[in-house]
Write a protein that binds this DNA or RNA. Structure first.
Lengths: 357, 357
DNA sequence: TTGTAAGCGTTATCAC
DNA sequence: GTGATAACGCTTACAA
């Protein structure tokens, strides 16, 4: 392999490498004629700069990307973190560094943690899953003003000036659930929705999307109850148990909260497993039995790992290649059903060796 | 930012950088004591080698990855290529080079093209969408024996010794279609399947997956016809028209071929649009009207772009980080329905400005 | 306008 | 065993 670098170009053009550099980078202080001549030679030679040498020479400062998401054992954020760190690792050769500053739980201590990260001023980007978007707005604005690109993940902070957000649109999840359940059920069917807390934007959007879509798909279909469990196991069980006993003609339910197990238990207790068709959200090992026994027909997942990966990648491509950050990046939610369950890493390990899938 | 490289370590250890190098790389010709001392200092200093400098020094040859897929305007391979090239571009800093050697059409000239690429011997990896897997087996084996990692994409070449394959399992697509249609229809429903050519493994797997799953999900459900259109528009129309007129109690159809439009036209002609429930495969702009008018209930897509991206990434991570190649990487197929249609790049541009989605 | 030379941090090749 | 010193290909002062 012959070497063709600035030196070779210089030799062929009978100039010095300094002149070649000026020509190649369109710097001033060079006559048009020599520049054109040099560029022609470079082109002709198929010159491609050695980027390792360039990196070494210009000594570009490492890009530091901070991650601030809940530490919660909750599998969701674990996946999110894994996606980010795995992606970052592939680019550490190029000077991508991560700073992992988890909060103890969603929303807890996040303002303090973020503020500290931003004020310290040694990071280039901040990826955050905001638990309380409103309370973070001002510090996010401060960060952006200070040149720190803020990437929201999972949840948006729409009032802030964050650079971008990577998420699954809750409305789409809800609409998909509505469309599926609407197709699964006969016209005129009554359904219910179980949610966490309607105060949370994502939960509200899911419920809204569902309630809007279901009647469109299922003629005369009606959403007769919205159960709000406040993320509490007991409330979830009691309220759903109440609905199942009260509402005798209930045909389906959209369980739009991760706190779904109590609802399924209530179904089992009422002997309605498989009778009332369930579309759920997210996916974790404990849900497997309910897929198996036919309680859950489908579940719409938020693709935490993919979200983390994309968020990190957007930040990296922004700094490394100057790719602009899109206002938002919406992922296509995945629909988990019995047929494709084995493809989801969230549950694959739990399915090992289990027959009859 | 303080500089801590081999030089700094050498200074602190009162040795030369040569000795530091010997210690760091476990080379021979150094006493245990000094090595340990140096390693301790390095550790303490949090020494991280500058990989740009290393690359420059060892002058590692660029990794060349060849891409051999059909050039076909067919949107699918376009997406596949885009995914690969976009991914490769992000790593060109690290010496990833691509060689794009398209074939005129699926299967056409591919043996010659691949053979030439392999014999030329200047590539490290080959990503290929095999049209005739069997005929390629020997040249793939030759490539692998010669140290070229072969990555199949979209379709496997199972008899060969290819390193890995990235694809959507046709069986899963078919099973998902069966599960969906089985849930959409009432017990005892009769359905049909339209496919391209059963000789193609992917098509066969889709049909098999569907036929196996549908009756499991839909009690007493039956697959009454399998239409094989040989990828021909007219055959597709005539055969499906025949089935629709002949089989009066047909309730659903799984159109498992990209050549789906003739089938939809036949449905329209028979006035059965929306009456016979359709699950399709893949997604392109011309299918939009059939989603809109309620002909297509869902379509299961092969995620060409994601496949290309993952295939390229696996190859890159193999060379750059020594990550082992998994025997295969199965992607979760996407299910396109009205609610999430706007998230698919394949059709988004065609939906611009169109109301009522 | 052009040329020269000194780095960037690592690896490799000598000589001691 | 160890220590100098020369690449690697590019950028960038500074000199001409």
């Amino acid at each position: 392999m012959k070497k063709n670098g600035v030196r070779e170009i210089a030799r062929l053009a009978n100039v010095s490498i300094g002149t070649v550099d000026r020509a190649l980078h369109g710097r001033r202080g060079i006559s048009d004629s020599t520049r054109d001549r040099i560029l022609a030679i470079a082109e002709n030679l198929g010159y491609k700069p050695n980027l390792a040498a360039r990196a070494l020479s210009v000594q570009e400062r490492a890009v530091r990307i901070a991650i601030c998401i809940p530490r919660e054992i909750h599998f969701y954020f674990d996946q999110l973190r894994q996606g980010m760190l795995a992606e970052a690792r592939s680019f550490e050769h190029l000077g991508i560094e991560t700073v992992y500053r988890p909060t103890p739980r969603l929303g807890i201590d996040e303002l303090a943690t973020v503020t500290e990260l931003v004020r310290k001023g040694d990071i280039n980007a901040l990826i955050i899953a905001p638990g309380n978007p409103e309370s973070l707005s001002s510090v996010i604005d401060e960060a952006e003003k200070g040149g720190i690109r803020v990437v929201c993940v999972d949840t948006d902070a729409p009032q802030s000036s964050r650079s971008t957000v990577v998420c699954v649109d809750g409305a789409v999840s809800g609409m998909l659930a509505g469309e599926l359940l609407g197709r699964f059920l006969e016209p005129g069917a009554c359904v219910a929705v179980a949610t966490g807390m309607l105060a949370a934007e994502d939960h509200r959007k899911k419920v809204d999307g569902f309630c809007r879509t279901f009647p469109q798909v299922c003629p005369n279909g009606r959403v007769v109850e919205v159960i709000e469990d406040k993320e509490d196991h007991d409330i979830a069980f009691e309220k759903s148990f109440g609905v199942f006993t009260r509402c005798k003609d209930l045909k389906g339910i959209y369980v739009s909260t991760g706190n779904c197990l109590p609802v399924f238990r209530a179904l089992n207790v009422c002997g309605l497993a498989g009778k009332i068709k369930v579309v759920a959200t997210e996916l974790f090992a404990e849900m497997l039995p309910y897929f198996k026994n036919g309680t859950i027909f489908a579940s719409i997942t938020g693709r935490a790992r993919a979200q983390g990966q994309v968020a990190m990648r957007l930040a990296i491509d922004y700094f490394l290649h100057g790719n602009p950050l899109p206002p938002r990046h919406l992922l296509v939610p995945h629909i988990a059903m019995r047929s494709n369950l084995h493809l989801f890493p969230e549950v694959r390990s739990s399915m090992m060796g289990v027959r009859n899938w």
